[in-house]
Amino acid sequence: MSIGHTLLGLLESGPRHGYDLKRAFDEHFGHDRPLHYGQVYSTMSRLLKNGLVEVDGVEAGAGPERKRYAITDAGVTDVAQWLARPEKPEPYLQSTLYTKVVLALLTGRDAAELLDTQRTEHLRLMRGLTERKRKGDLADQLICDHALFHLEADLRWLELTAARLDKLAAVIGS
């Protein structure tokens, strides 16, 4: 996730102080990990340097810097371009699991059990997400669903691999 673009997008509805930005971010996107203020600060200076935001004004007073940021035209364009650009699908190659399975097969361990254990773990996580979804609001449900679908995809891979273990063993053995 691009924090810069997200903060830029939040500025589109109007100028904000740095701290407001952090709060808005946390509210919408920071379910799992709230943003550190330092991260906001460094990101904003980078955006300022690139001319995507400008300083709208500084509030006098004690404590942390009270700069108000506003988005520039270039910034709006940048957000529009980011939203319009499709994310590069990342073929997550199950590299770790794949390595484990191959290693198990190579070392004569029970690869099926490995996969079953993994499945149980996946399902355990999915159960937790399902439970959270059941109790949560719409936003929770959508986010959990996203995770659930990914986990489900992993699980399908696990099942398919389990069904093809014999073939895989043969290929590795040869």
Binding site: T120, L123, M126, R127, T130, L148, L151, E152, R156
Partner: peptide
């Protein structure tokens, strides 16, 4: 055979 449906369970049994 759907994991998302199985996720409503308390535990699972695999038949193979």
């Amino acid at each position: 055979h759907e994991a998302r449906v199985a996720a409503y369970s308390d535990r699972e049994v695999v038949v193979r």
